[in-house]
Design a protein around this nucleic acid. Structure first.
Lengths: 157, 157
DNA sequence: TGTGTTAAGTAGCGTTTCGCAACTGAAAGG
DNA sequence: CCTTTCAGTTGCGAAACGCTACTTAACACA
């Protein structure tokens, strides 16, 4: 158990605030969802999401600054600019899917469209879960928060 | 592949906007992280997170309205109120951990504290990943977005 | 070469949300 | 009583958001 007087110090060492600073704004996740679904151009995002143009502009700049999207001008048509996911951006898929699945289960109550499927089986992906190193899905009562200093030394890094 | 003219209609059927409406505000995830770490009282959240009191008050009300936290007055000391995670709130753990792990890998570059460990092995949990129904972790190139209508009928629901 | 259209923004302006600090009110505690 | 604690609320300035209109550069084609 974590001692109450250490909560503040401990929670400051968490990467969650840093992550939220990059993608925590209202539209960021929706822009990323669009990108995962193949949107790439300013006008595509704008028309699809219905986001205000100045906000979209601002979010795209910020996502590029954070290295989540890459801004690549089209050499064939120099009016066009494509915003594409970087590896860093693609790495957000589990978080995005986890959030979407939560919405399906606990808010909308129905499966979203489009469905993310495994290309081989063409079946929907499994629910995103927290798992042990060996792959077992873990419930909350099988989990525990541990101060890093209390970790067995061999797994500390 | 999804036809461009259907993007708007299709993305409207997604549960992500609904999820973000519930937990997409700036402090919501940090409040939840606090709750997962055992915080329960107004003053605890306020002192630990350094959030403005009016914002905290507003967020707690909203999270309770969404059924993510439960507001339970303390029968022994009637000044005190405990905010505790509901099942709906607890179900957000995978999304929260996925986001935190992304921050560790791509922003802070170091493991966060406290560490979430499997109680049995006392080792950190595995990276949250998108997996096939059989448990295989899937890369982005093994995934595909499919319109629900194109799903094999036997797995459509 | 002029005319119209498209892509990607920018600018102006009102509304909403955020954040700080000070205040309130009820309930312990001594 | 008198003080402290807990959980908020209020007032007000600053920042973010959203709508609409405007701009700028680059095609397209006659």
């Amino acid at each position: 158990m974590i001692r109450p007087d250490h909560h503040k110090a401990i929670l400051a060492e968490c990467a969650l605030p840093a992550a939220l600073e990059a993608v925590g704004e209202r539209w960021s996740f929706l822009i990323l969802r669009g990108a995962f679904n193949g949107l790439a151009h300013f006008e595509e995002f704008q028309a699809t999401l219905g986001i205000a143009r100045n906000i979209l502009s601002n979010r795209l700049v910020r996502l590029v600054e954070h290295g989540i999207l890459r801004r690549e001008p089209d050499s064939a048509d120099r009016r066009k600019v494509a915003y594409r996911l970087t590896d860093k951006g693609r790495a957000l898929l589990p978080a995005l899917i986890a959030l979407r699945q939560w919405g399906e289960s606990w808010i909308s109550g129905m499966p979203s469209n489009p469905v993310l499927v495994d290309r081989q089986s063409r079946r929907p992906v499994a629910p995103v879960a927290v798992r042990a190193a060996d792959g077992r899905a873990l419930q909350l009562n099988e989990l525990e928060w541990l101060d890093r200093a209390e970790l067995p030394a061999n797994v500390r890094d």
